[in-house]
Nucleic acid binder design. Structure first.
Length: 454
DNA sequence: TACGTTGACGATAACGTACC
DNA sequence: GGTACGTTATCGTCAACGTA
């Protein structure tokens, strides 16, 4: 019979129960939330009765001679009487998020040892091979077992039920990747079409709007992600990436009135990049020249090309003298929960938030154009004299976001036009981390903000 | 609808045992 | 010890199903 992931997980824990829990790596506690007593002690996801049901089933497994009989108890259709234990096992598995945690750790090992399915595809497959064989990842097998079953998991001869269960777990992890690959393969034509349509819409538009830019960024990013499975077909995506880059850089250059060389580091021209650049030249980007729009699409662009950070410089926000595009919010944006600030410019916002020079006290002052990490040796390289450094300050929409959090978070009741709390959504390029960090700063001990109007 | 999970089946490798 | 043959384990694949 086949083996489900959850029964294989329980089998590996039961089969190795007498030695794997000596683990010092804390892996078993982290992934399964269990110690050597397993379900004989209170479990945060289960009632005492459920623990008893599961405990009884584990006892029964321990008294069975063969793995086959064990799996019959765990999931067999012909062997009844264990419904309570099976239901509890299912509940524990889901509540503890075992599948996700196991997948996450196995992927880390595969990636670290360069044998993840995607890495193997990029290395090149055998003739006629579409997806890599799990045997190609064989050299990572022992490390995978150590990571998901603790640092004693290899001490006993890995045979029998324990070995069988670990193989099933790894098999499921591999299958998950195959599924993603198949999905990417199926969806590729549609993603190509969506990206092509979105690019063409901008190319042909009389007026390019931020909404169109959001749309094209979304589709190019979706295509970019799907294309990572197919390294040999990069042509289209490179053209679209270059197109997007050129459109945005032109908008930044126009709005900031700075030379293009100051904004972008030129990459080597390939035929597809040339095509993208040529198409971008025809775009009428005048409507994007408002500073707020430029900043928004710039944030989207950085998110899209996050793996290439450092190739471009962030556009410099000139202290408080630049209005940064709030006019456009006034005219066209929907209320995204930040309506109360649409009439404030950077200077007003920075004053309210106590952000001298456009950023909070102690906020990192510089960013590296070449992509240096601020956590490494800041004292020597992150200094004004270093030409690689660029002055940092928060963008207008990020300041508005922090102000909105401060404003909404302490509301105790819903009133007309005001709802307590705030939702910062993912994938829109608003700078979630920056917002939360700055909220912690402005609302922390010693802050005057809570006593002021906002 | 996307994504994870399950179950089935065939192919092949590894192992065990009987026989010469 | 070598070989043949049966059994078991492992691997590869994919469609159906379940769930959020």
């Amino acid at each position: 019979m086949s083996k489900t992931l959850w029964s294989a997980v329980l089998m590996s824990l039961v089969a190795g129960r007498s030695w794997i829990f000596d683990d010092e790596s804390n892996a078993l506690k982290y992934i399964y939330g269990l110690g050597p007593e397993m379900f004989d002690v209170p479990n945060s996801h289960l009632t005492d009765k459920q623990c008893q049901s599961l405990g009884a089933m584990i006892d029964a497994l321990s008294h069975k001679g063969s793995g086959k009989e064990c799996y019959e108890i765990l999931e067999g259709k012909e062997v009844g009487g264990w419904a309570a234990g099976r239901n509890t096992l299912d509940k524990w598995f889901k509540k503890q998020k075992v599948s996700g945690l196991i997948g996450e750790w196995i992927d880390r090992v595969w990636t670290m040892l360069d044998v993840s399915p995607m890495q193997l595809i990029h290395e090149g497959l055998e003739e006629g091979e579409e997806f890599p064989n799990i045997l190609d990842a064989k050299r990572a097998k022992e490390d995978v077992i150590l990571v998901i079953l603790g640092d004693h998991a290899l001490e006993k001869n890995a045979r029998g039920d324990f070995h069988d269960a670990t193989a099933t777990i790894i098999h499921h992890a591999w299958e998950r990747h195959r599924k993603r690959f198949k999905h990417a393969e199926r969806s590729l034509p549609k993603k190509k079409l969506d990206a092509a349509v979105a690019v063409k819409a901008i190319e042909d538009a009389e007026v390019v709007t931020t909404r169109m830019m959001r749309e094209v960024t979304k589709h190019v990013k979706a295509l970019q992600q799907a294309m990572t499975w197919f390294p040999k077909q990069k042509d289209h995506i490179t053209e679209y990436e270059k197109f997007l880059k050129e459109v945005i850089i032109t908008a930044v250059v126009t709005e900031r009135k700075v030379p293009k060389e100051k904004v972008a580091v030129e990459s080597e021209d390939t035929p597809s990049r040339k095509r993208g650049a040529a198409r971008a030249q025809k775009v009428r980007i005048a409507s994007l020249a408002a500073a707020g729009d430029v900043e928004e699409i710039w944030a989207l662009y950085l998110q899209l090309f996050e793996t290439e950070l450092g190739q471009l410089e962030v556009p410099h926000v000139e202290d408080d003298e630049d209005p940064s595009g709030w006019e456009d919010w006034e005219n066209s944006s929907e209320d995204l929960g930040v309506d109360g600030w649409r009439e404030m410019d950077n200077g007003t916002l920075n004053h309210l938030l106590q952000f001298p020079g456009g950023k909070p006290m102690l906020f990192t002052e510089f960013r590296s154009k070449s992509g240096l990490c601020a956590w490494e040796d800041m004292s020597k390289k992150f200094v004004k004299e270093n030409n690689d450094m660029e002055q940092l300050s928060l963008l207008w929409h990020q300041c508005v976001g922090v102000a909105a959090i401060v404003d909404k978070i302490w509301l105790s009741n819903e009133t007309e036009g005001d709802i307590p709390g705030i939702l910062i959504t993912d994938e829109v390029g608003v700078g979630k981390t920056v917002k939360v960090q700055q909220f912690r700063w402005v609302s922390g001990p010693g802050s005057r903000l809570r006593e002021e109007e906002i």
